[in-house]
Design a protein around this nucleic acid. Sequence first.
DNA 1: TCTCTTGACATTATCGTTAATGGTTGCTAA
DNA 2: TTAGCAACCATTAACGATAATGTCAAGAGA
Lengths: 330, 330
Amino acid sequence: MESKHHVRLADIALELGLTANTVSRALRDKSDIGAETKALVKETAERLGYIPNSIAASLRYGSTSTIAIVFDNLKNPYFMIMADKIHQRLQPRGYASMIFAGDNGKLETAVLPPIVSRKVDGIVTFLEPSKAVLDILADNAVPIVLVGRRNADLKLDSVATDDAKGGYEIGKLLLERGAKNIGYIGAPEEVECSRRRFDGLRKCLADHHQAIHSENIRFMTTPTLKDDLDVLVANGVDAIFCFNDMMALECHALLRERGIRVPEQIRIAGFDDLQKDIFLPVRLTTVTSDKDAIIDAAVGMLMRRIESHDPASHPRFVDFDVAIVRGETT
Amino acid sequence: MESKHHVRLADIALELGLTANTVSRALRDKSDIGAETKALVKETAERLGYIPNSIAASLRYGSTSTIAIVFDNLKNPYFMIMADKIHQRLQPRGYASMIFAGDNGKLETAVLPPIVSRKVDGIVTFLEPSKAVLDILADNAVPIVLVGRRNADLKLDSVATDDAKGGYEIGKLLLERGAKNIGYIGAPEEVECSRRRFDGLRKCLADHHQAIHSENIRFMTTPTLKDDLDVLVANGVDAIFCFNDMMALECHALLRERGIRVPEQIRIAGFDDLQKDIFLPVRLTTVTSDKDAIIDAAVGMLMRRIESHDPASHPRFVDFDVAIVRGETT
DNA sequence: TCTCTTGACATTATCGTTAATGGTTGCTAA
DNA sequence: TTAGCAACCATTAACGATAATGTCAAGAGA
């Protein structure tokens, strides 16, 4: 019927001999509209299959009810789980989620225009924004919250976990289990939380009068950790702390392939406690944190920024505690 | 400086004594604008940090350069991998991706308003849309492509894999490996591709003069497959075909926990070949398909619909072949 | 009786951008 | 000389919604 174009406010108005404005106010239950008119308008809107054009509304009203999630790549289960949790909290509040991949591990200005130009109400990022990015976002009044990483130099809301403590506690556990020669396989050097996890481990070892051989500190440079693992095995490590669970799983499988028994010959620990959210075939020893609470906090901070129209003053840092999960790999 | 509001075309125009229209055309390299004016405009835009308001542009121009991806939940690695692949192809083309969760496994009209009202240029769905949904999308001229599922009754573009063949081939492999008592653990009954995979298996068994005991056909109803697995084990199955790899992995782990050896005592096969895209600790026997080609096809179909302004006429169905991957679980 | 509300809707302007026209200058060709 | 035509930019009108005002009748209060 109405085949030319989709139904607009004006179409409903025409049908009822009203104006678009009246229809708009009626649908949104504003004052100054009679009760029967409201009912009539709503009924007609329903009958005609009216779906508001929120692009037009956004332009006028100023909000898009859309937020951007920025991550490295969705293939990483950690990001995926977190993105899913964010999305789960936003959808009921009427927000839509847009996903954007950063520029190899960083949130740089290059990826900003597609986000900012779409006038998202806020950004949740897993990647550290550069100073330039924060300036642009401030200029455009876009609130942003950083999840999982922490950088005291950057002035933005962030929720993070105590990476250093996680590394420290894993170190304690490994020592307790008799490890004498511990290795670390981390993300590339520029990833700050990888460094912090390692620093925790190192501090623990130092506190227990042990040292980690520099050869056994691997900040991955290749896409696979096979080569790094080879070095550790050759150096006779008896325990490996991996930056995250996916790497730990890969280690586990590679070692099994070579006939090296876990944990008897080499103990393995990861980080993230993925098994809490998705099924993993091995009960890893890992570092857990309350991901739901983290995302609640992150989304809450963002919502407050949005509602207060105060994108960036007095940034808040929330830190969440971590705990060790003792799995079958130690 | 420009702290009151973000920079608009009008601000650039004012700065240069031009009009907003001229600035707009200059930035987009349209005709009727002098070369030096263009250069000057671009330089000024750069200097002022101009980021276009694509909400306004969308309203006028009619396209948002945004597509919606609809799936069940991102926690399912299969959806996540596919979503990532879609996103990877769209971002370079200037499209942003919005993610939406369906209504428990279906794309129903309830989830449509947030998508349609945001005027996305197209939809990629992993969930079967109802007839009502397709009507609404047609009314609003929103193209849609269905990925991974197939329903000949529905008039929409779709790309799918040959589920039945996958089930058939897995059946052949299991028989070849000496299985005498095969069980199936599928998704809930209403999931059509689960039924098709099973139908393939059943046909294979029939062709080989075997039958599958009705007790050993489990269309999961509980969130965990533990209970269904218990029944199969009690019934003494020696092979289990799972609807997908995640379920196969879970079976594998549960069986190992009980001291049942895989594949010696029970063979396991899955579907999706997740290990091609993410790391899995077990080399599963599974059914593979060319996911990249599938997504290429899906995105290509959608782009053609968008560019041709012909959302739904003469729907196309593309089917992709499948192949068996022989892992260590058979 | 007359002003004053007030309820209920209409008018108008606006968000920032882009398409469709208008208008002016200068140069060329008849 | 002068119509004619580029080249180049300005003016105006959308896109569809919403906020800020206007308008007008009916009823209330003095």
